[in-house]
């Protein structure tokens, strides 16, 4: 986990976006290893498949469509102000952690609400050894239904944003070819209309 901290700071410093997306993939893989150590095998599995695989591929796809280098911007004042805000927030959060239960404490409040019921009765009620699956699909299936709808909506949103935008741009190009005289003025205006 200390490695993860170092990596996050490296992500903040490096300006080559290709290296940044690669590092974020490795960052996810390290997170997955940390989850295994913390007994969350299902979560580690998901993180390894999603974080290290799919999101890196998507990042690289975006970089192929945009630029690879981050521009050197933001004077020193902006960075310092941001660092000040972050330091104050972090200090407040660390002050808050002193009220947290200790690491691995079995009498922490989180372990005494519904979790013992799931662990004791789920085998009799659902009949699955994997408690995570039975909670996910049976006890909290409304929650999971909502998550599935979110994924559906996200995919539809990507289709709506990029799928139709590409088609419109092609229509613009066709329009530009037919109206050659005013193409230079027309296309930026159209782009503005579609963007707003």
């Amino acid at each position: 986990m200390l490695i993860m901290g170092v990596m996050a700071i490296a992500i903040a410093r490096i300006r080559d976006l290709f290296a940044v997306s690669m590092l974020s993939g490795i960052f996810s893989l390290t997170a997955a290893a940390a989850y295994v150590v913390l007994d969350a095998v299902d979560v580690a599995f998901t993180e390894a498949a999603v974080g290290a695989g799919i999101s890196t591929v998507l990042m690289l796809g975006t970089l192929a469509l945009t630029t690879r280098q981050e521009k050197v911007t933001g004077g020193k004042s902006k960075g310092t102000a941001a660092f000040f805000v972050v330091a104050v927030t972090g200090a407040v959060l660390i002050y808050g952690t002193f009220d947290m239960p200790r690491y691995g404490d079995p009498i922490a409040p989180i372990h005494h609400h519904v979790a013992p019921r799931y662990l004791e009765k789920s085998f009799g009620e659902v009949g699955m050894p994997n408690v995570v699956t039975s909670v996910l699909a049976s006890y909290r299936s409304f929650d999971t239904l909502g998550e599935v709808f979110v994924i559906f909506t996200a995919a539809t949103g990507v289709l709506a944003i990029l799928g139709r935008a590409g088609r419109r741009r092609r229509e613009d190009e066709i329009a530009d070819e037919t109206v050659t005289a005013r193409s230079d003025d027309a296309s930026p205006d159209k782009d503005k209309e579609t963007a707003s």
């Binding site: 969350a40 979560v43 799931y118």
Partner: peptide, 18 residues
Amino acid sequence: ANPLPHVLILTAIVVGVA
């Protein structure tokens, strides 16, 4: 280990990538 946070985070990761 407590299974409930695992369930929440499991779905949150996939929603996060979406």
